[in-house]
Every structure is written in structure tokens, then in C-alpha cells.
Design a protein around this nucleic acid. Structure first.
Lengths: 116, 116
DNA sequence: GAAATATGTCGTAAATATACGACATAATAT
DNA sequence: ATATTATGTCGTATATTTACGACATATTTC
């Protein structure tokens, strides 16, 4: 009965954690950066740019696609991936809200600790 | 020889992924929000606020502490945790840079796909 | 139609993460 | 000194992630 107490948290917390998890591997960060750098939507030869096997890259792509952060359209033989910039903007706002909340309080300084 | 190809990515990508990973579980998001909500730095009775055992919460706290996102000072019997707001601000900027980069290109719209 | 090409899916091995009970430790209280 | 309290650490069971080779599928190209 171990594991998966995730449902006990708020939907907001779960949502933030889900997106954070999508960014929690350098390969997925790199994929998003790569897609952003290309004006045209590049197909799965993304794999050629990364130090990972094609299969593994495909797996990472599916994870990003599952959250709808990226989209893929079949174009003949190749698949054309692109960023869902609308969603990414929403996610950015979500993170910003979280960080503003977290950095609002003075709390403890950089080197010293707190004084409770 | 499987696993851990992480070193092959840039330090920037690894750093972003590391922080994202720290936020990749709702419990850790909740912990940060809880610390932010309290003016005083609350000790480990954070566990009482979360639907998890004390041990598990302690584990999550250690993960956040390992990245220096939170700090803990021993105050007699209790440990006084607090947010490292300075670092959180830096992390916020880092995420903002990433998201701005990712949302800069027009790419594909919300419902339609890309046109390569 | 057959060969080549681009992808996705499946199976699987190894590494990590999650969750918690049982102990160990240290400090306060009695 | 002893009991109580607050924490951390260890061990361990289970779930998930990461990584990749082997196949299956679909689409061009010849």
C-alpha cells in the first residue's frame, strides 16, 4: 500500500509538480530549447542533436506530448514537433505566481539562518 | 551501463532540471508554500500539516535542503526551517529566462498544429 | 511490389524516487 | 537520572524513471 499519496494534495500543487516533473530531466529541457531555437518545427531528428538513442528521445517526446507542452503532426514520413507556446505561457505564469509567493516573505538571508 | 547520461548535457540544462526535479512532487511544493505562508520559520511539525508520515516529510525536507532552497537551524529541541528567498529569486529568473526563450517563437497555435 | 526511411511501441534491465516503520540521538522537562 | 519530545538516519518494499535494442507500422521511392 506504499506510494502514490499524490492525490491528497491540492490540484494546484499537483499541476505545478506535474509540469516541474516534465522539466526535471536535462534531455527534456534540451528538447524544448531545441524546438524553440528552430523556426521550423523539426521532426524526430531531434535525436541526432542529443546524446541519447532515438528510442529514448522518443520516450521523452511522448512525456512532453502527454502534458501537451509540445505537439506532433505527422507529415508524410516525418513527424513535425513544435512547442505549444500558449500553454507554455500559462505555465510560466503559474511558476511566476509560485515563486513570487515563495519570495515575498523576508525569511532568512543568504548566509545567516532564521530567527524563530 | 544503462542510465545517467545526464553529464552529457550543459550545466545550464542540468541546473534547471535539478531545480525542476525539486519541485516535481506536490509534497515539496506544499512545503515551500507552507514555509512561505508562515512569518515565523516553522519546525518539522510541517509534517502535521501534510498527509504524509513524519519520516517521509523529513526526506522531502532533506531534498530541498540539499539544493539549498531551504535552510534549517537547530533551535534547542526543534529545527527551524526557512526559505532561502535569495536563491529562490535566482531560480525564478532562471525559469523566466527559459520560458521566455521557449515562448518567443510563434510556433504552432493552441489548437492547430505546425506547418513545416 | 520491394527496399529504404522515419517513427512509435514493447520488453526489459538498472537506477531513482516514494513511503514508512524501527532505531539512534540530542535536548528539555520532571 | 529518567522520561519525554523533536529530529534525523537506516533499512526496505514498491513504484517510477531512464535507457536502449528488437519489432511493428506506415510512407516514400525505385
Amino acid at each position: 500500500m506504499t506510494y502514490a499519496k499524490i492525490a491528497a494534495f491540492t490540484e494546484e500543487q499537483q499541476q505545478l509538480a506535474r509540469v516541474a516533473k516534465a522539466l526535471a530531466h536535462p534531455a527534456r529541457v534540451a528538447i524544448i530549447q531545441f524546438l524553440a531555437s528552430k523556426q521550423t518545427c523539426i521532426s524526430g531528428d531531434i535525436a541526432a542533436e542529443l546524446p541519447l538513442s532515438r528510442t529514448t528521445v522518443s520516450q521523452h517526446l511522448q512525456e512532453l506530448k502527454a502534458l501537451d507542452l509540445i505537439r506532433g503532426e505527422i507529415d508524410g514520413l516525418t513527424v513535425c514537433y513544435c512547442l505549444n507556446t500558449e500553454l507554455l505561457k500559462q505555465v510560466h505564469q503559474q511558476f511566476t505566481g509560485f515563486f513570487l509567493e515563495a519570495t515575498a516573505s523576508p525569511a532568512c538571508g543568504p548566509a545567516d539562518a532564521c530567527a524563530c
